[in-house]
Nucleic acid binder design. Structure first.
Lengths: 135, 135
DNA sequence: CTAATTGCAAAAGCTTTGCAGCGCA
DNA sequence: TGCGCTGCAAAGCTTTTGCAATTAG
């Protein structure tokens, strides 16, 4: 599978086994959002012998390279999500912990408008809806 | 000043000197958003002799009691803001670190609508706009 | 008086870093 | 071959916790 190699080369990172493996974990994960622990355990489960320090370093590098995005759904752990080229925000169910992705053009537009009204350019944003199932 | 005493009693917390002092710091601070360190230093500067553990415990209790709200503008430190009864979101200038509060009825409404469309009730949300000054 | 609260210091995470050895280009 | 990368273990940070002394009601 040369796909990972290309992705790494494209962002100027050396193609190494740990990096390829971490990319593969993120690409094939059932859950798009994984913590460092999640990734680390997935690697161990797959029989890979990487240190958790490498997972930390690698995910941080991937973030810097724009390969992944870091989220903070709860105040502790970061979770990482592979960038698939589409922007979206998140809805987190407070009961099940399930994460749902959504996108609202209207909200995006309003955010930009609000920033402009204050004489600012919008660089980025964090929007998380905390929800629970309707009864 | 009995105002703090009442606020504490109202939420069922014993009225103690550290709690009163911490409330006063939050009420009189120039900046609405303070980290544990900020509060701790303000207390020391005021000549108060409290342990930082107490500041952590107290702010967490205040949060549980609804007296303050905890925010995570950057991924490290929490910052706390005294609840003054109005809901608002935040805009953070990535250059100066300045925090601006804003409120958009339209965004609030859209959020609720989006949650509903997914068969959820909206419990809360986090919205932070990262901005920089227009050139 | 009794239970809650506090301060100190130790413990507990999670994350980062130093360094020697290993691996990619 | 040379520089970057990795693993390990140690160090760092922020936050939490145990406990004896103190304080509020």
């Amino acid at each position: 599978m040369a796909k990972e190699n290309q992705e790494l080369r494209k962002v100027g990172l050396k193609v190494t086994l740990p990096r390829i493996k971490i990319l593969q974990v993120l690409e094939s994960a059932a859950e798009h959002h994984m913590s460092v622990e999640d990734v680390y355990k997935a690697l161990l489960d797959a029989g890979e012998d990487v240190g958790i320090a490498t997972v930390y370093r690698t995910l941080t590098q991937f973030e810097g390279a724009g390969l992944v995005t870091r989220h903070h759904f709860d105040e502790d752990h970061s979770v990482f999500e592979l960038n698939r080229g589409d922007h979206h925000d998140h809805m987190v169910c407070v009961e099940s912990g399930k994460v749902i992705e959504f996108y609202s053009d209207e909200i995006e537009t309003l955010q930009k408008k609000i920033a402009e009204e204050h004489e600012f350019d919008l660089i980025g944003h964090t929007l998380i809806l905390y929800v629970k199932p309707k009864k």
